[in-house]
Amino acid sequence: MLSVLNSLQIIRFEQVLDRRELLTKLADTALQNGWVKEGFTQVLLEREEKYPTGIHAPGSGIAIPHADAEWTLVPGMIVAILQQPVAFEPMGGQGGEVQAHLVFLLLISDPDDHVAFLSALADFISDAEKIHQLRQDNEVSLLLNHLKQAGA
């Protein structure tokens, strides 16, 4: 089983982007990395419109876009740290528009293989202090250490 942690990338964006532009950039990066199948970008965009992934997390607005498992070739995660927040619709439809400062593109091939990772990620996004720290330092190691400590 491949760990998500082996394929972890953080990208910082300074420019103003809308949701489609951001998701396209992240999906194209995943494609260039060889982590997803051809056609993933379109699927991701469509899925986000149908099932939005914006979350009003304690420390910041975030989003966790993802597509069905069949599109993932290599389990991984691409994290976007946004200087200019990007608007996402709220998951579950409640709480109004989410101004996301952090976006976690999840590439999961089999959810049962990655329960520990997903739990560790949930702990991370529930922790306002860690979210702030990641936004400031944009250090892969911070995120990686947390996820590892949490048993991912």
Binding site: Y51, I64, H66, L106, P111, D112, H114, L118, A122
Partner: peptide, 12 residues
Amino acid sequence: GSSIATSTLAAV
């Protein structure tokens, strides 16, 4: 939406 990420978390 996809039965991948969030339902797995919620189930756990």
